[in-house]
């Protein structure tokens, strides 16, 4: 479903802040794969996700989604294939627009937008039903501005929006990092539910090793712009946090990085 081949990215090239963020990363995800991505700060996790989403162009390599080469497409042209939830709850929704309008915008992700009505009556009922299933108390607040919602509510709404029109690929970029533990757990549970229900191919970046092990069928760890660990299937199911740490120090050849990972 996703095929990333040898992608490279340098930030601030030619300056003292030059950062080689991705060094020839390759990754192939099969249809229905749920891959968690972990790594320390600056390892390249979010960079990898942004490269796939098309936030900027990569310096080298190619990316294709569902057989379509998207390497040279800007982010809004990749939107037909990709659903996204950002780390910052502010980024995924339009705060000055209604819950209803946000959902309607998401339902038309990647479609031509013309002079038909932006929200139809049939949609309104459909969304009300969907929000009821989310159990966030939002079903009676369809016309509320999204800016009035809490961070957790926004992330849950963004998740719903990302999956409203089934994407070929769902990108979750530390989408629970800005939430309190209880809310984070709830949003994570919801993510699992949505991914399973719609059978979505998913990449989830997380700081939390336990979450990375518990969720999904595949786990990759990044270090210094490369994928250093890649486990899946039965092997991943049996994985524990200490094992993962040990594995990591073997690959990266240092102990201090462990602390960085644990602390972050």
């Amino acid at each position: 479903m996703l095929e990333v081949k040898e992608i490279w990215k340098v930030f601030n090239a030619g300056t003292v802040n030059e950062k080689q963020a991705l060094r020839g990363v390759s990754l192939t995800l099969k249809d229905g794969d749920f891959c968690t991505v972990i790594g320390g700060n600056g390892a390249g996790k979010s960079t990898l996700l942004n490269a796939v989403a098309g936030t900027w162009a990569v310096d080298g390599g190619s990316i294709s989604i569902g057989g379509v080469d998207v390497t040279h497409l800007p982010d809004h042209k990749r939107a037909p294939y990709i659903g996204r939830v950002f780390q910052d709850p502010m980024l995924g929704t339009a705060p000055t627009m209604q819950i209803l309008e946000n959902l309607a915008l998401a339902a038309r992700r990647g479609q031509r937008r013309g002079l038909r009505w932006g929200v139809t009556k049939a949609e309104k009922e459909q969304y009300q039903e969907m929000l009821k299933n989310l159990d966030l108390g939002l079903e009676d607040r369809l016309t509320s501005k999204v800016g009035l919602l809490s961070g957790g509510q926004r992330q849950a709404l963004t998740l719903l929006m990302a999956s409203l029109k089934k994407p070929k690929l769902l990108l979750l970029d530390e989408h629970t990092a800005a939430l309190d533990p209880k809310t984070a757990a709830k949003v994570l549970e919801l993510s699992d539910r949505i991914v399973a229900e719609s059978h979505l191919t998913t990449m989830m970046v997380t700081h939390n090793m336990k979450d990375a092990i518990q969720h999904g069928n595949r786990l990759i760890m990044m270090y210094d712009g490369k994928i250093v660990i890649d486990v899946s299937g039965e092997e991943k199911k049996k994985l524990t946090v200490p094992q993962l740490l040990e594995l990591f120090s073997k690959v990266s050849g240092s102990d201090e990085a462990d602390d960085k990972l644990l602390l972050s």
């Binding site: 950002f86 929704t93 339009a94 946000n102 998401a106 937008r113 013309g114 002079l115 932006g118």
Partner: peptide, 23 residues
Amino acid sequence: GTELGCALRATGSNGSMARAQGI
């Protein structure tokens, strides 16, 4: 109130959200 008009409002409200929706 049209799709295009909503896209315009979304652009002003939150550019990154708008682009993620293919606007």
